[in-house]
Amino acid sequence: MPALDVRDLDRSFGSTKALEGVSFSVEDGELFGLIGPDGAGKTTLFRILSTLLLADRGTAAVDGFDVVRDARKIRERVGYMPGRFSLYQDLTVEENLEFFANVFGTTVARNRHLVDDIYRHIEPFRKRKAGALSGGMKQKLALSCALIHKPSVLFLDEPTTGVDPVSRKEFWNILANLRSQRITIVVSTPYMDEAILCDRVALMDDGRVLRIDTPDGIVEGFPGPLWIARARNMHALLSGLRDDPDVESAFAFGDAHHVKPRPDAKDPAGLARRLEERGHQEVVVAPARPGIEDCFIEMLGRKVSA
């Protein structure tokens, strides 16, 4: 039995379709990522899975329990961490944790070992009000609160949005630890670099799941080669690239431009030469290994042109 089984979910808000025919399943103990931009429908999906919203159509089951019929059973076994910081800002770290433990019918003393790894980081501040914590600490506290009752499935809605890079890394280490304790985790993120840390990811956009695979599988599925290009004037280079007959698409990506050559394109050196001839200086074009983001953008491009 999969920990999560989602079939053909549809959900609209007025005329906006938040989810359209979403289906996937998550295995027990899997770390599953929902990757997609804002407005892709990730939060709506979480809310349906955690029994907070009803779907217009389709079914979903968590640990074999239906999200509509067995809502109460699900509420006893999931941990949910909403995107917005949802703890009591005027209560201290300690009080928040104790309260959420009690809400789930347990105590901090009894289940302390479950959150020890995480809570250790924030324990020095246990007398501090939650509102006065830094973003990263807030997320650790929220995760502790979501974990204190030993959930079998954990839903994390963009837990690292607005958190500094160091804390993000720490947070993902914690998730990896949790997975080794056989807790099923579904986590959403707009950050592509976090996607490779998941067992499997679902790429979502505009209410649809575009693709579900392991991060490696998604990268391997990238059609054709990928080149990166740099020059002294990066801005001019981008339009230069797009005008070139060998280039199918090009977009800015960090400190270099990622270029998808046409299937009949020959080699990066030819492209570099042509660009220099047209006045671009210090041009470097080299083959590169595509990342998840390249795949995602490529898929979006295909969807638009389709």
Binding site: S50, T51, L52, R72, R75, E76, V78, Y80, M81, P82, R84, F85, S86, L87, Y88, Q89, F100, V103, F104, G105, C145, A146
Partner: peptide, 13 residues
């Protein structure tokens, strides 16, 4: 408004 109700609702209370 602060979203804490969301967490409370997803609890057996």
């Amino acid at each position: 408004e602060t979203g804490t109700m969301e967490v409370l609702l997803v609890s057996p209370v």
